[in-house]
Design a protein around this nucleic acid. Structure first.
Lengths: 341, 341
DNA sequence: CTGAAAGCGCTTACAG
DNA sequence: CTGAAAGCGCTTACAG
């Protein structure tokens, strides 16, 4: 049942040519005559020749493979990024090998070690939540393996990074609330150990300052991981305040959805009494009622940009000395949850 | 900056041993003395030796790599399956290379061709929606590359398949509506060109028949891809009927969510007037209000099972002649959308 | 318990 | 325009 695979040598013998010529003909080498190329390709097709990519990788030291390290594949943001990476990689004839760190530093280190065995030409990574120091990634540079980080990127380490403008996005979201007439604006913040959530809180505050609005500390609620349940807790804490905020900017969509649901049950009108803005543009933001105004975090595009930068560095030897930071501009998507007019 | 990589030969020279011995020592070959093993491993560690996995793959004809073909990575179901595959593969020291067919037959064929170049030891695939004939997959068998399908599996082709019990799941869901007191039960069906949706419709009908309830054709609405928007259309069609169903089983969660939202706006009480069951246990099912009763489709487990079966067939030569179908048993998750008591 | 040797299937610098 | 030859870094059957 299982056939022996056809090799270059088989083709060579069949055609009375050398393996070198076959190899060059299939690779469209300019030195080979058109007629020979045609002949070789026809024969290859007929015999069902499939080049052994492992042999080729071994010989050339190129695998045309990208390694990806994500916290979890089943988080929508990451699956979108991966999709963007795969898309760009596929067009450029690279393939994509995925590892999940499960947000566990130990596992991240294991994966980094695995990826050093020449399996991939370059690596794209989003740091695990536990990762503070990135020394384990430094080996890649020594090995000449380009590396690009996205979203959760190292701070102690000069590297290629693809990020979004979190500060400005938060600033824009908050200004949008102000423009909608909100004067007492609250925030649900993510872990301040994570840069992106820190930037979102700072952008929020900066917008208030710019417009001479007070920063009320009891309007700023902190969470550990911005989960749906934490959002419910925050909503209840807002309800216990002497006076509700009239606008709330949430550092992600899940907590925004919790707010909407808890507030609606408490007969609070959204957006009339409280306008709400989320962050990420998760699918649920256009299903929840009222539909949620949010920041599109351009996850797919982050993936594309990561792959583009990485592949450029893989193929462009001179380039790989520099490290580059690319900031992707998000956009505010205005929906019912802030349409007060 | 870029160091030359250490090879077996370097280690051998350094230790005055042969490359054969180094190779065996690192591989814990029983013939090598413990003292030599210790010596070699220590030296390897010290020099930072990283085995060249491509050279090893080339030599042994094993890549320890699994190829996955999914329609899209960013569909939650598939990202969960991939997560399950990666999890099992990682534990067994396999890695996972992903391709998206984008539900396009042409691209699926391209990917299948790419995967035949020895890059992977086995393949897991979910067919593109356009795929009717699976001839392009037959090459894998000839090449001795094990192949497992999940979810959308071929019918014209004797293959390894991981599926869920769609018929029974639909039957259970429908019986649950009946047990909740529903007597006029409707269904939102997926494309009847796809087996799983056909099975769900049949399971639905079978439950009605068993309990001597009428099958009302105008209570069975057909959709193309069970999208959220189509769900809204279906909801409105239900509302135009002379009498509403008192229970509706939807072939997925998105359409169920649409029903809930449109019905609530029309002041129809859920579950008192209409009880609703979905299918898939998407994250939104426990966020939408009322929370949605649904079938957990065990996507992660499908991934695990696919990987398990595939790896067994990769490593167990005798086994690979048979093809196996594994049916994963789903479970009904009862939530507010059907709690009428 | 260890070593010498062959070879996996390509690619490419060199030669003509 | 084509070929002969070397070699990428491992693994393993064979020999001792």
């Amino acid at each position: 049942m299982k056939n022996r695979r056809i090799t270059l040598k088989d083709l060579a013998k069949d055609l009375n040519l050398s393996a070198s010529t076959i190899s060059r003909a299939l690779d469209n080498h300019p030195a080979i005559s058109e007629s020979t190329k045609k002949l070789v390709k026809k024969k290859a097709e007929k015999l069902g020749f499939i080049p052994n990519s492992i042999a080729s990788s071994f010989r050339t030291n190129k695998t045309k493979s990208i390694g990806i390290i994500v916290p979890r594949i089943d988080i929508h943001f990451h699956s979108l990024v991966i999709s963007g990476i795969e898309d760009y990689a596929y067009k450029n004839e690279y393939n994509v090998t995925i590892f999940q760190s499960k947000d566990c530093l130990k596992r991240e280190k294991e994966i980094v070690k695995i990826l050093q065995n020449r399996m991939v030409d370059g690596v794209i990574a989003c740091l695990s939540i536990e990762t503070k120091k990135c020394d384990h990634f430094k080996k890649f540079e020594k090995l000449g393996v380009p590396l690009v980080f996205y979203d959760r990127v190292p701070t102690d380490f000069d590297a290629n990074k693809i990020i979004i403008n979190d500060f400005e996005s938060a600033f824009t979201a908050t200004e949008h609330l102000i423009a909608s007439g909100c004067k007492r604006i609250g925030h649900i913040a993510g872990s301040q150990k994570t840069n992106i959530f820190k930037a979102r809180l700072e952008g929020f505050k900066a917008a208030l300052v710019k417009h001479n609005l007070p920063i009320q500390e009891d309007f700023i609620l902190h969470t550990k991981n911005l989960g749906y349940e934490e959002g419910v807790t925050c909503a209840n804490r807002f309800l216990e305040l002497p006076e509700l905020p009239d606008g709330i900017f949430c550092a992600n969509d899940y907590t925004a959805v919790s707010l909407i649901q808890v507030f609606r049950k408490a007969d609070i009108k959204i957006p009339q009494q409280v306008a709400i803005v989320g962050f990420s543009n998760y699918p649920i933001s256009k299903i929840i009622e009222p539909h949620l105004t949010t920041i599109n975090d351009c996850a797919f595009q982050m993936g594309e940009s990561s792959a583009k930068l990485l592949i450029r560095q893989i193929e462009d030897k001179d380039d790989s000395v520099n490290s580059e930071t690319i900031t992707i501009r998000t956009e505010l998507i205005v929906r019912e949850s802030t349409k007060r007019a």
